[in-house]
Design a protein around this nucleic acid. Structure first.
Lengths: 244, 244
DNA sequence: AAATGACAAAGGTATGACCTATGTTACATA
DNA sequence: TATGTAACATAGGTCATACCTTTGTCATTT
């Protein structure tokens, strides 16, 4: 086995420009850890990785370093690479969230994310009411109107898209860089609700009103009202998901 | 320059077991990017890194991979390593937070974190009221009592330590893994308040009462009250920091 | 039983080579 | 002149190998 001629990393090798090798290995290993296939405390060596994925030491090290930087593993001389306790993982890393959503533990990840939404989005709405730019306020109002139109027409797919745009824009208008960084995760949660049939055929009128209320409050610069209205939206979500 | 004999990475070489080389390089580069010394769009090459820090290509690549996984840079063939726009950074990565707190932009990082606390901690308190274990409830109550004692005695350092323990335990009792992961950042914010003299000589009585109220509500399993009481604590913080 | 020292395993680091994608430039063509 | 195209050089991607350093482990000694 001089060079990696034998289809490294178990790729099906179908599409040409698939992905960089190190990313595929990273994803594979990350998913293995997150799924519990490689349990906490499990010890690996660079040699294991090289053989398991048929890669060079360079790539094994690259992958390990990234995993280490996410606190999924740590490495010690003479010991090897050890899978960390989940308590220590950087659970805000988008890669990790993605892996968990793809695993059998997806339900837990969703409820964590939903609770995070419940916490953050009202404050983000208040922040937007204080700090959003004029264009953002206009766009938010427009999106709320579009949500009503699409919702009443029962166009669920388009509704989802607009809903994601609404919540994402709100986070971006909040003026808090950490809130902005949550937009991908919120989009993920919203998509999944629709895909898993957790959405009613038509959005409830209360939800439509609440979105309009948020947009109006943000447009008016009324932080308190924006926060409360966003709370109403999330109460909808909470009950829809059967949370307390 | 055959091997790295000339004091690589600019270490002062004083303490023997300082740190792994790759971590020092990572910190140095991360801080350089975060501080703006390496502005977004700035292009580097692996060769640059090797020379700048007097390291081998192996380490330059390791460092780059980690930075890439944090979205601080991206790398493209024939182009090099490009510093990303701050909008795209993984701002929840603890390393990044640490670098920013050490930079001249620390104030922005603090206000982002504080707003995040304002959002998360009340919901975490509510979660704790629902899901905390018996031992956690007892310990929270004990910590609230200790906070009163230390606060009234004016022992600021011990108070800070207990305060951190209180908020950290609350996050850990919330039953939400993502909230748990914020404990280090909350501790950081709390420490800084005291160090920067933003704390009154003695904690305000209202703050002490609010901590006791949170503990009592969690102990009683009263989620709504716990959430509200935590809001009061954070209102204190908000006004102390001069936020709206 | 405890301290000590030899040994070996595994990551840490350094080099050098070759592969491959891709920006750039120059040239040829319409 | 504008445009498509082919050659070229650059810089990361990947691999292989070698040596250093730390640190578990185990046998030896006291």
């Amino acid at each position: 086995m001089s060079t990696a001629t034998e289809n490294p990393a178990g790729t099906t090798d179908g599409e040409p420009g698939a992905q960089a090798l190190h990313l595929r290995v990273l994803d594979a290993l990350g998913e293995a850890i997150v799924s519990g296939e490689l349990a906490p405390g499990r010890r690996l060596t660079l040699d294991d990785l090289q053989q398991r994925y048929n890669i060079s030491r360079t790539l094994a090290r690259d992958t390990m370093r990234v995993l280490e930087s996410m606190n999924l593993v740590y490495s010690r001389r003479r010991v090897g690479i050890v899978v960390q306790d989940p308590e220590l993982w950087n659970v805000f890393d988008p890669k990790l969230v993605r892996w968990r959503l793809a695993s059998s533990r997806r339900a837990e990840q969703y409820s964590s994310l939903t609770e995070l939404r419940i916490a953050v989005e009202p404050i983000a709405a208040a922040g937007a009411a204080r700090r959003a730019g004029a264009a953002e306020r206009r766009q938010l109002t427009a999106l709320a109107a579009e949500l009503r139109r699409l919702g009443e027409a029962g166009e669920l797919e388009a509704f989802l898209k607009a809903d994601i745009a609404f919540h994402s824009l709100l986070l971006h208008s909040s003026g808090n860089e950490m809130f902005k960084a949550l937009d991908g995760m919120v989009a993920e949660v919203l998509s999944s609700r629709t895909q898993q049939g957790l959405m009613p055929f038509k959005p409830r009128p209360e939800a439509l009103e609440a979105h309009e209320a948020v947009a109006a409050a943000v447009a008016a610069g009324d932080a308190g009202t924006a926060e409360t209205a966003m709370h109403h939206i999330l109460d909808e979500v909470r009950t829809a998901m059967g949370l307390p």
